[in-house]
């Protein structure tokens, strides 16, 4: 396993004691594209910070390519590439110089650094932007430069912290393409995200994380299948006092696998059954049905099922 995290805990002492990471164990195999999915404040960034030697754990160990990140951080950094949430590009240097100096820090000779920089600029379609300064780049381009720089020293594992935060949809797709490309190069990728589409479409394996703990971990397909339903109906009612009665009635319908009461209505997990929609409508209309949404089950459904909350809450 290229990334091994065992019993990781991080507690910030202070006026308000915060347990940011509360016993995380995970292992990522070489070449995997692994996702940590969870809401803001779930402990994803802290986990990544510890794994990339930027924070010290309160307890537990992290090994990257066999190296303990606390005992030998400088050695571990050779195996790690990081793209943090915010733009840390060197504002005083051009795009070319950013990558070039990064290579120099990691022991490349000047000539080797130049070759590697040119190759990366081409790979990430940045050749024309080589002489631009980071402040002149859009968010999407800056993100691409950061990824190119992070892998310049040929790390074994690339950590991406919320890579699509603040990107427009088009830049996000371009970033996804770039990340998929890395996988073909054999780089292991660990990313954090609170976008379930991102985890679903990019990652081979996903850990859903909340309050510093991993709730469940599997492939996106298996996680979605664990719901035992293909559809989620969400009902909003005018008469909230009638919800318990309605929930009972809905449970009796064929094709429905589970029903949960929500604040303003009910959430129904169901198979793709013919005629179920009209039965649901019939059952709900006496209670003043205000709105109905139908969605495929997603990783978000899994999160809601596990925590009762939305990812964005």
């Amino acid at each position: 396993m290229i990334v091994e995290i065992q019993g990781l805990r991080k507690v910030y002492e202070g006026k308000q004691r915060v347990v940011a990471v509360d016993g995380i164990d995970l292992a990522v195999a070489e070449g995997e594209l692994y996702g940590l999915l969870g809401p803001n404040g779930a402990g994803k960034t802290t986990t990544i910070s510890i794994a990339t030697t930027r924070a010290l754990p309160t307890a537990g160990t992290v090994r990257i390519a066999g190296m303990d990140v606390v005992a030998s951080p400088a050695q571990a950094r050779c195996a790690i590439g990081v793209v943090p949430q915010y733009n840390t590009l060197d504002r005083a240097c051009t795009v070319f110089e950013n990558i070039h100096f990064h290579c120099r820090y990691f022991g490349f000779s000047s000539a080797e650094a130049t070759v590697r920089t040119r190759q990366l600029l081409e790979q990430f379609h940045l050749t024309e932007r080589g002489t631009a300064y980071p402040t002149q780049l859009s968010g999407g381009l800056a993100q691409r430069v950061q990824i190119a720089r992070a892998i310049a020293h040929r790390p074994k594992v690339l950590f991406l912290d919320e890579p699509s935060a603040g990107l427009d949809p088009q830049s996000r797709l371009a970033m996804w393409e770039a990340v998929r490309g890395l996988r073909q190069e054999g780089i292991t990728v660990v990313l954090t995200t609170h976008y379930m589409e991102e985890a679903d479409s990019l990652c081979g394996r996903v850990a859903i994380i909340d309050h510093g703990r991993i709730l469940v971990e599997d492939t996106p397909e298996a996680l979605k299948a664990s719901i035992g339903a293909q559809r989620v109906y969400r009902l909003d009612l005018h008469q909230c006092e009638a919800i318990p009665t309605l929930v009972e009635r809905l449970r009796a319908l064929t094709g429905v696998t589970a029903v949960e009461a929500t604040e303003s209505g009910a959430r129904i997990y169901a198979h793709n059954a013919d005629g179920l929609l009209s039965e649901v409508l019939q059952a709900a209309s006496p209670y003043g049905l205000r709105d109905l949404t139908i969605a495929e089950t997603t990783l978000e459904s899994v999160f809601i099922r596990l925590t009762g909350r939305d990812l964005r809450e």
Binding site: R54, A74, R77, I80, V82, P84, R91, F106, G107
Partner: peptide
């Protein structure tokens, strides 16, 4: 936060 990148040097 440029310092974060400098700190990631080996």
């Amino acid at each position: 936060r440029e310092i974060d990148d400098r700190v990631m040097c080996p």
